[in-house]
Amino acid sequence: MNVSNNKHEHLDVLVSSHQPEPSTLKNYIIGFTSSVILTMFAYLAVTHQFAGKWVMIIILAILAMTQFIIQLIYFLHINQEFAPRLKLIVLLSMLTVVVILVGGSIWIMNNLNGRMMDTKAMEQYMNSQNSL
């Protein structure tokens, strides 16, 4: 074909650098079903409260991370091609940003909570203000 608009050249490289996936629909169904199941587990875990606070937090975090990885694999097809360096860089920078933001937010909000009045004392104070 004589068509060599640069856009198509490059996008063709993008598309043809890996083998066509065997059954995309199957992958999407696996990804979707397992995501639904993991979400259901998380929901039931919260509604039934079958463990202590910290165990629950760890369980939920593990469920969330598992789902995150499943979505990367089944929806974003992260493992289906030999990853070029650029993709690795993008993935790593994404992880860096997520770690900074999530870690930073937890640090900041915990630090703030540690310096807050406890709820009872606050309610007492607010009631005393209302009566004025």
Binding site: T96, V97, I100, L101, G104, I108, N111, L112
Partner: peptide
């Protein structure tokens, strides 16, 4: 690009976080 994700708290220093933060 990297550092711009590590400075956001300077918009709310006065919120009451500790001196480490």
């Amino acid at each position: 690009v990297l550092l711009s994700f590590t400075v956001w708290l300077h918009h709310f220093f006065t919120m009451g976080a500790g001196s480490n933060v």
